[in-house]
C-alpha cells in the first residue's frame, strides 16, 4: 500500500482533537474529585484527553504516512435536503401534527436525490405519509396527534 500525506487522515484527526478537546475543557468546569471519589468531571477529562491525543496521533500520521483513501465527492444537495427534512420533523411534529409533518419531511427528503422527478417526489411523499400514518398511528397506537394545534384544530 502506498503511504503519503493524506487529507482524510488529517480531517478525521482534526475532528477527534476538536471534540476531545472541547469535552476535556468542558469537564474542567465540573468537580474533578480525588481517585477515591472521582467527581463528575474526572472521567470525561480523562477520556477527552485520550480522544484528543489519538486525534493528534492520527493527524501526525496523516501528515507523514497517511492511509490512501479516496475522499470522493460530497453530495451537498443530499446533505442539505436530509438535514433540513429531519430538523423540520423535530421542530414541527408537536405543532403541526403527524400528517403534515410527515408529508413535508418525506417531500424534502426525496429532493436529496438528483434524479428525482416532481411527480414521483409527490407520489412517494404521499405514499409514505399514508403508510407512516397507518403503521405508526393506527397500527402501533403512537400518541401523536394527526393534525397539530398550529393548524387551529
Amino acid at each position: 500500500m502506498e503511504r503519503r500525506r493524506s487529507f482524510p487522515d488529517v480531517l478525521a484527526g482534526g475532528v477527534f482533537v476538536l471534540i476531545g478537546g472541547a469535552f476535556a475543557v468542558g469537564s474542567l468546569g465540573y468537580e474533578l474529585g480525588s481517585p477515591l471519589r472521582m467527581g463528575p468531571g474526572a472521567f470525561p477529562l480523562l477520556v477527552g484527553a485520550i480522544v484528543a491525543a489519538l486525534g493528534l496521533a492520527i493527524v501526525i500520521k496523516g501528515l507523514i504516512a497517511g492511509e490512501v483513501i479516496s475522499f470522493g465527492p460530497i453530495p451537498w444537495r443530499a446533505v442539505a435536503a436530509i438535514v433540513l427534512a429531519v430538523l423540520f420533523f423535530g421542530f414541527t411534529v408537536r405543532g403541526l401534527g403527524f400528517v403534515p409533518t410527515s408529508a413535508v419531511t418525506a417531500l424534502l427528503t426525496t429532493l436529496a436525490s438528483s434524479r428525482v422527478r416532481p411527480l414521483m417526489a409527490v407520489a412517494v411523499a404521499a405514499g409514505l405519509t399514508v403508510a407512516g400514518t397507518l403503521i405508526f398511528v393506527v397500527g402501533l397506537q403512537l400518541r401523536i396527534p394527526l393534525w397539530g394545534p398550529w393548524l387551529g384544530f
Partner: peptide
C-alpha cells in the same frame, strides 16, 4: 429513490 425517504421518515418517527 423510494427506499431512502422511507428510511429517513421512519427513522425520524
Amino acid at each position: 429513490q423510494v427506499l431512502f425517504p422511507m428510511i429517513i421518515l421512519f427513522a425520524a418517527i
